[in-house]
């Protein structure tokens, strides 16, 4: 039976956005923690650590999110973890995010002038103290804008996890379309909801970037 695209369908789609947002937040937090470790390892003085981090970044950035998702999903279940789709999805998105955030943050750490390392070395700071009190606070300011920009990528890529049965925005759209056969209306609505989430974040990222550049020039 063909249903109409009515208010209740719209509300179904809109409310599925909570899974999109939850996935984004989970993968941002998990991926952020992991990405932080990647960035620190990538700027380590120990060559093996640097290599390991570079390898992780290179590998993850060379594999589609969709395949990362399947790898995490089947890999984890093979190891005996029978995870609910939302968890498997968050983990794979976190792997994905860790590589991109790790690489972004590496750049931010290296953007701090080397004289800041030297000045703090001369003041007898240990390496962890330098990171904690001198380098990271400065790197963080540089990192805000590109990190916010990356969140947009993250939101968009959560759409891919619809394939393992998480009923987030894209999947909800699919379900409604299968019932109503009004693809323009349905997917147009889905797209607009994504846009309503992503565009403000994009604008924010751009504004933050402008602010940072202005403060640097001044």
């Amino acid at each position: 039976m063909i249903r109409e695209f009515t208010q209740s369908e719209f509300i179904f789609i809109l409310s599925s956005a909570r899974w999109t947002l939850l996935l984004t937040v989970l993968s941002l937090v998990l991926g952020g923690l992991f990405g932080f470790v990647v960035a620190i390892a990538r700027t380590s003085r120990l060559a093996p650590l640097r290599l390991l981090a570079a390898g992780w970044i290179g590998v993850v950035q060379g594999i589609p999110v969709l395949i990362l998702l399947f790898l995490a999903y089947y890999g984890l279940s093979m190891l005996g973890f029978d995870l609910p789709p939302i968890v498997a999805a968050s983990i794979s998105m976190a792997f994905y995010a860790s590589a991109y955030l790790g690489e972004i943050w590496r750049g931010c750490i290296q953007a701090v002038p080397w004289q800041q390392w030297e000045a703090s070395t001369a003041l007898a700071f240990s390496r962890p103290q330098q990171y904690r009190y001198v380098i990271l606070p400065q790197a963080m300011r540089i990192a805000v804008a590109p990190t916010v920009g990356f969140i947009v990528q993250l939101v968009k890529n959560t759409s891919i996890v619809s394939i393992i049965g998480v009923i987030e925005l894209a999947r909800a759209g699919n379900l409604v379309n299968n019932a109503t056969f009004q693809p323009f209306k349905v997917f147009g609505t889905v797209a607009l909801i994504y846009f309503a989430i992503c565009w403000p974040i994009s604008l924010l990222a751009r504004r933050l970037e402008g602010k940072l550049n202005a403060s640097r020039a001044g």
Partner: peptide, 15 residues
């Protein structure tokens, strides 16, 4: 740039 490629694809393919 502010919508997922997947959704764009679905609009084109089904729409």
């Amino acid at each position: 740039r502010n919508t997922p490629f997947l959704v764009q694809l679905l609009i084109i393919y089904f729409g």
